[in-house]
Simulated assay, not measured.
Amino acid sequence: MEKNIASRTVESVTSAVPLLLKFPERRFWVDYDVEADVLYISFRRPQQATDTEMTEEGILLRYKGDDLVGITILDASTRSQ
């Protein structure tokens, strides 16, 4: 990886640290599908969700029973802080 790209990557990750530390779970996995523009955040692997609730903002909350096991963010690239 080119040093300039590595430096920008480290800067991006570092700026996200405060937000990541606020997650309700200590372990989580993040996947991004560029073509679909969907960000997947899983609090369990495998998720094995049994129910999904969509918020007004177009975010899918994935549950297994009463436990939140994942979040799916549609149109992820259009969302900002």
Rank of each mutant, 00 (worst) to 15 (best):
M1D: 07
K3H: 10
N4L: 11
A6H: 13
R8V: 05
R8L: 05
T9W: 12
E11Q: 13
S12W: 09
T14A: 15
S15T: 13
A16N: 05
A16D: 05
A16V: 03
V17G: 06
L19I: 06
L21Y: 09
P24L: 05
E25F: 13
R26E: 14
F28N: 07
F28D: 06
F28Y: 15
W29F: 14
V30Y: 01
V30R: 01
D31Q: 13
Y32M: 01
E35M: 13
D37S: 09
D37Y: 04
D37M: 04
V38L: 13
L39H: 05
Y40N: 09
R44N: 10
R44E: 11
P46W: 00
Q48G: 07
Q48P: 05
A49N: 11
T50F: 01
D51A: 15
T52M: 10
E53N: 06
E56Q: 08
G58K: 06
G58T: 03
I59V: 15
L60E: 14
L60W: 10
R62K: 13
Y63V: 01
K64R: 15
K64Y: 11
G65C: 00
G65N: 00
G65L: 00
D66Q: 07
D66L: 06
D66Y: 03
D67T: 12
T72L: 12
L74F: 12
A76G: 03
A76S: 06
A76P: 02
A76T: 02
S77W: 00
S77V: 02
S77F: 01
R79A: 03
Q81M: 11
